[in-house]
Every structure is written in C-alpha cells, then in structure tokens.
C-alpha cells in the first residue's frame, strides 16, 4: 500500500502534540503537506473546484446542514403553541437519561449488538476455516454462502417472520410440538430472538467473505513450516492463521457493531416494528419512532446526538482497525 488511508496520520507529525484537540483538528484540515497528492499533478484551482463541487454541494445540503440542525435542536425545546424555540441547555439529555424506556432500549441494544456480533463472527469463522481446509467444492459452497448478501434485510426479516409465525410458520409449529409456547407477537424475549436470528443470517456472508480472503492470504510457507514441525491443522490454525487474521477479526467486530446498531433498522421495522411493548425497539428504531412518528423533536434530537457520538466513536475505531489491517504484512 503506497499510503495509509487513515487521514489521522496526515499532518499528525506536523502539529505539536500539546495543542488542544480542536486546534489540532483544524490544523490538520487546513494544512496541506502533500499527503495523498500525486508527484505529477495539475494546479488549475478552478477545475479542481469544479470537479469537487457536486460532491461537496450534496454533502452541504444533505449532510452538514442537517447534522448541524440536529446538534442545535438537541439543546432547545419547541413551544407547542407558539412554535418558539427555548434554549434549555442539557435538559433534553437529563430527561432522556432518566427516562426508563430509553434506558431499557439502551440495554436491549447492547445485548442485541453483542450477541449478534459474536454469533455472526463465530459462525462465519467456522465456515471460513472449513472452506480453507477443503480442496474440492470451494467455489460451490462459497456461491451458496454468499447468497444472503443479495437479499434485502426486509426480505430476510420477512422470511424469518414467516418461519417463526405462531399461526402458520413451520419453525414455530416445530417449537410448539416440543412444548415451547413460542409467540413473538406476545413474548418480548421471542421477538428479540427472532430479530437476532434474522440479523445474523443476513450478515454471516459479509464476515465470511473477509475471513475467507484473510485465511487465503496466510502464506503457505508458514503453514508448511509448522506442518514440518509436527503441528496439526487445528494447532496450525491457532498458532499461524489466527494471529495473522486477528486484525481482520478486530475490523469485523467493529463493522458488526455498526451493523447491529444502525443497519438493522429495516429488519426490526419489518418483523416486529419495535414491539411487543418496545421490547425490540433499539436506539435507532427509537429515534425514528420518537422523532418521525411521535414528533417529539427535542428528545429525538438528543437521542440523535447520543447516536452520533457512538457513530463517530465506531468510525474512529474502524479506521484504527483498518490501518492495522492494511499495514500488517508478512
């Protein structure tokens, strides 16, 4: 790789480390030390501006202005009659964190993302390991395992909702035959299990592709050396492959967190719509319900800010992990 794509490294060495973070960021944003610039380049400023303008205009109108509005809305309350905005400081956040339904939603989101994450990584890891060991049929298995990538989350949700539908679903009737009183429309834990299964099923293929590619990239010479030393397949995996693919695993762990937090919105909307009794209303789904359906703008803006902090945190972590992945060379 000719250059790290982590911009955190660019200009980092130029600015003094003792500078406050905000000035450091500003210095990085403004200073051009030629990072990521071709040696042979052009200098027509107007043309560069022209080439960049569509991207930046769209970002301005649909990203920067809305994000700024979300930030400013979080600190005001709108008078329902006059439509006046009153600055209330952190009151929205105080209300939010003392709201039991929000705390419930936060715990539920944590449980859901962690379980979904570990299940996805575990299953994808076992499948990638197995693919790596066999000689024949790799392409065939891979084609089938890739399939859910093409399937929309809503369809994945719909299919699992059918399978576990208490009135008609084959999986639900199997559970009933075993004496389990399965009903995701009434029992909160069943609904949570249902969206977890659906989210995992949809996402295994993604982790699988990355893990299979990473295992394929482990140098054959290292494995042979270990084999000559008498290490068996599992021993080789533990001592050779696992340390080498660890950065990819770390990267996927973060990606899975982001997926669980944000991208499962459509599964939840299609399968349970947050119910029963808010038992599957994750933080993202709650923002949508409170802000878009219930029109509680102050609270929803404060919720957005909480999620923004999480999103920024995970993006930074993702870039950290990506950096390791790129730089890790044998």
């Amino acid at each position: 790789m000719p250059a790290s794509i982590n911009p955190a490294h660019q200009g980092g060495r130029l600015a003094a480390p003792s500078l406050p973070a905000s000035r450091l960021l500003l210095a990085r944003m403004l200073r051009d030390d030629g990072t990521g610039l071709k040696k042979a380049h052009y200098t027509q400023t107007w043309l560069a501006g022209l080439l960049l303008s569509p991207q930046l205009l769209i970002l301005l109108f649909f990203f920067f202005i809305p994000s700024f509005k979300a930030l400013s809305l979080a600190f005001v309350q709108v008078d329902p009659f006059g439509g006046r905005e009153i600055f209330v400081g952190l009151q929205n956040f105080v209300d939010l964190f003392s709201d039991p339904s929000y705390r419930k939603s936060a715990w539920l989101t944590l449980w859901f993302t962690i379980v979904q994450n570990i299940a996805t990584l575990g299953i994808a890891g076992v499948l990638a390991f197995a693919t790596d060991q066999i000689i024949r049929g790799q392409v065939g298995y891979r084609s089938v395992l890739l399939l859910p990538y093409a399937i929309a989350p809503v369809i994945s949700g719909g299919i699992w909702a059918y399978l576990f539908n208490p009135a008609i679903g084959p999986a639900a009737s199997a559970l009933h035959a075993m004496g389990v009183p399965w009903d995701p429309n009434l029992r909160p834990s069943d609904a949570l299990i249902l969206i977890t299964i659906s989210a995992v099923w949809k996402h295994i293929c993604y982790d699988y592709i990355f893990l299979a590619a990473a295992m394929l990239a482990v140098p054959q010479s290292l494995r042979e050396a270990a084999a000559i030393d008498g290490a068996g397949p599992l021993e080789r995996f533990r001592t050779i492959s696992l340390p080498l693919i660890a950065p990819v695993v770390m990267y996927l762990f973060i990606i899975n967190m982001v997926y669980g937090l944000f991208d499962t919105f459509s599964i939840i909307d299609a399968v349970t719509a947050g119910g029963p009794a808010g038992s599957t209303s994750t933080l993202v789904y709650k923002v949508y319900q409170d802000g878009f359906i219930m029109m509680n703008l102050g609270s929803s803006a404060a919720q957005s800010i909480v999620l923004m902090v999480l999103a920024v945190l995970f993006t930074v972590l993702q870039f950290r992990a990506m950096d390791r992945k790129v730089n890790y060379q044998v």
Partner: peptide
C-alpha cells in the same frame, strides 16, 4: 485541498439513521 478531503471524510461518520428528522 486537505479541507475538502476532510469534509468528505467527516460525512462517513454519521449514517442517515442517526439524523432522520433533520
């Protein structure tokens, strides 16, 4: 140039899901 790059980079951070209403 770096400012433009950073502005684009920042948009990576906030998915639509967190800023639905605005």
């Amino acid at each position: 140039r770096m400012t433009a790059f950073w502005l684009i980079f920042m948009s990576l951070m906030l998915p639509v899901e967190v800023r639905i209403v605005p």
